[in-house]
Design a protein around this nucleic acid. Structure first.
Lengths: 153, 153
DNA sequence: TACAACATGTAGCCTTGGCTAAACTTTGAC
DNA sequence: GTCAAAGTTTAGCCAAGGCTACATGTTGTA
């Protein structure tokens, strides 16, 4: 938000596109936050299914550092969002849509981590920060990251 | 988000090192999200005070794209957090702590935007993405960014 | 001065994303 | 085959961060 706020709001101020643009930006940031958790869950479920064949609420909870009840609740949100399915006492599974999202998320995560490391960020910090950053990186920015990494050879 | 309540369930993170690490990471990401909004408010209030001498709920609301009621409610959270003060019908002001935070946030924002632009991200996208990214950039990563930008001259 | 327009504040409702507690299934060791 | 341990689900609570609707203050202008 570094841009200095121009005028005080008034007759002229309402016409400035700056406010609308900024508001849109913030709104986008906020809605990104609401999808970030679902992205994390989807990626983790894909991970667990791949490595152990099942994705149980308890394992998910332990990996994310939340209670198992929270994991269960979020899984049902995943179902509502059409990203996952779950049979009682049989864990979670991804829908086609969920798998597609998981793939996108994984690729994006890798790219962000690689970029941070390329800029000299230590691996540990890169992994940790990427966890938060990745949900806010647009397609445009992602392309620029890829481009930059390619230019490094 | 009740830091105290959240961490009361501390046993989850004490198990395996690998899982603990990941859990800590996610936990950090989540708590970063809860402070992100306050950071945005503080920076915007500093901005408005600078440019117009006052920070009214309505202006804040318009800039952030939320209702004035939401702005008012958040301002009282700011007060509770010791970041701002407010006199009825006279808008918001920052405490010493709030001003310090605003400064840090502004510097960080500039750095993130500059870095993105240096990597070839178009200005518009850089500004927009930075809004979301900046709240998740650690000190370590921030230093790496600064270092990289300096290396470009 | 008075009043309309606008800003502010309050109340009540919603969803998300946490938690604990308690009831219910599954499962593995006798 | 039983039964306790472990995992799962449900229910109910809380705070954050949105919203609308309504009541109350403030102010510019006629």
């Amino acid at each position: 938000m570094g841009e200095a706020a121009k005028r005080r709001h008034g007759d002229a101020a309402e016409k400035l596109p700056a406010e609308g643009t900024q508001a849109r930006r913030f709104g986008k940031t906020r809605s990104a936050q609401s999808t970030a958790l679902l992205e994390d869950y989807v990626e983790l479920i894909a991970d667990l299914l791949m490595s152990s064949g099942e994705a149980r609420p308890t394992d998910i909870a332990r990996r994310l550092g939340v209670s198992h009840a929270t994991a269960v609740k979020t899984i049902s949100r995943l179902k509502r969002a059409g990203l996952a399915t779950a049979r009682p006492y049989r864990g979670a599974f991804l829908t086609e849509k969920g798998r597609a999202l998981a793939d996108r998320v994984r690729v994006r995560h890798r790219l962000v981590v690689d970029l941070l490391r390329a800029l000299g960020v230590p691996t540990e910090a890169a992994e940790a920060d990427a966890e938060g950053i990745e949900h806010h990186v647009s397609e445009t920015t992602l392309k620029a990251f890829a481009q930059y990494l390619k230019s490094l050879g």
